[in-house]
Amino acid sequence: MANPSGTGSELPAVSEGNLHLVTSPHVHFGWSTARIMWLVTAALLPCLAVAVYHFGPGVLAPVAGAIVGAVGTEWVLNRASRRPDTVGDGSAFLTGLLLGMIVPPGFSPVHAALGGVVAIGLGKAVFGGLGHNTFNPALVGRAFLQASFPAGMTDWSTAVARVDAVSRATPLGLLKFGDPSQFPADLATERLLAGNIGGCIGETSAAAILLGGVILVATRIASWHIIVSMLAGGALFGGLFHLAGVGPSPLFHLLSGGFLFGAVFMATDYVSSPLTHRGQWIFGLGIALLTIMIRLFGGLPEGVMYAILLANAAVPLINRATRPTIYGAKR
């Protein structure tokens, strides 16, 4: 399958008369970075559609802001460092979209754009661009926004609400700081699935995220090991604490906050997740444990972002610990 053109790969090919040289891999799946990035973008569309339905078209403003910030930064930094333009591969667009999905519905588009600048500039470009970053760029951008604008990042009330219920605290916020008995309907499983609750733009509807997850796993873009291990870990650790009388049911843990969105779209980032399946299991279980610990014993109502960033930092170590033995080598 030595097809130098049309496979979408950027492999160098040399042609000289009848001599035709192509570097390996010769059997290529034919998928380019751009194709993967746009497919993930497509998998995010259900979440965006549900957000527009529940919170109104106003949610498109912060999403667009984040995308403009991310893509603009990618373009400017490529220019400034005289590198080939990588805007076309869609990775910056996807980072911006992911960042836009994890800010509150009424978040300022200007601040979202700043988050996009930080995500690409400090999360990716300083390490050398796509494939060289230790941390998930969208989460780096969100961590910056969370530390910069703590009020804006926890203000769930400014959403243009179609349903009254969406303009109040998130279910996790209710559990941590409020009186859950006041709004028992907000904690119901149907609501968590449908997404008519308070929360970040893309994270509220578990059903829409699961649909995106099915697309990613069916097209083999995302590693199911990470998704399943993170969900299993959430059920296991959440369940253990629940049995011990601490915290809500494991199902609530999995469906509320950013747990599903993080498992499907954030933890599965190729660059910042482990290489081996064994490593991916450790990674997913680690994120789940950290998330549950932060939720139940930390000062914040939600901990998925910090859990994934911390696990990202441990990835080189996980990769080293789970390196497969070469066949025939002594253990």
Partner: peptide, 9 residues
């Protein structure tokens, strides 16, 4: 202007 609180952290 909304200050970026992270800068003084």
């Amino acid at each position: 202007y909304v200050p970026w609180i992270v800068m003084i952290l």
